[in-house]
Amino acid sequence: MLGDITLGQFFPGDSPVHRVDPRMKLLLTALYICLTFLVKDFIGYGLLLALLLFCTLLSGLKLKFMLRSLKPILMIILFTFFLNMFFAKGDRVLFAWRFIVITEESLYFAAFMALRLVFLILGTSLLTLTTSPIALTDGLERVLKPLKLVRFPVHELSMMMTIALRFIPTLLEETDKIMKAQAARGADFDTGNLLQRAKAMVPLLVPLFISAFRRADELAIAMEARCYRGGEGRTRMKILRLQAVDYLALLLFLALLAAELLRQRLL
């Protein structure tokens, strides 16, 4: 039952965080990212942490889910940490052995950089956890609309994303079926060395590609039959209108940004 794995990590809900307009969420995420790069000390991170905690509590998500999003990139975070710890320069040496030198400054810097990564991931996870992929696609299309002026294929891109989202569960289910059908003919996907395993994928991949192309072909005909002719002159069913909650969220983020800038100026 591969098909039941939902793409991304969207967690449905009806909290104020969920209700924020996807366009606004994208804007706020951009603001948040700027903020993580502006922060210069741990007090600044404290501020970010407070913001994240507040949003997470408001969204009704369990902290566990947020932390789980760090798991896939744990290695990268650790790598960043150690790299900076060993190679950043500093004066107050804490530990030295041959060419490895750890200084107080490098330790501080390493922790700082690792935390920046952590905050970046946590913030964007909050976006994907509380926004459905379709709303995200929709928001992206509208936010990117100005890029049309420079001939960027905004509509095409978002249509491709929508179709991909629509067909991923279907193709996962199909993968499952073909794997079983080939296993019934004695195919073995699990044993052997890397080369043998790669070779064993052929009986799975060929039918899968053929099926994907057939589906694409049929879908194109069905879309044409429903008068699809690109983005020109197209309207959308959903009207996105900014609500009070959107302005409140914006205000909160701007206030935080101002506070951090002011604090840095005063110090």
């Binding site: 199909e174 073909i178 059908a181 080939q182 019934a184 052929v202 060929v206 039918p207």
Partner: peptide, 9 residues
């Protein structure tokens, strides 16, 4: 399986 022709490769 159902629609076994989809396994041909």
């Amino acid at each position: 399986f159902q629609y076994p022709e989809y396994q041909l490769f």
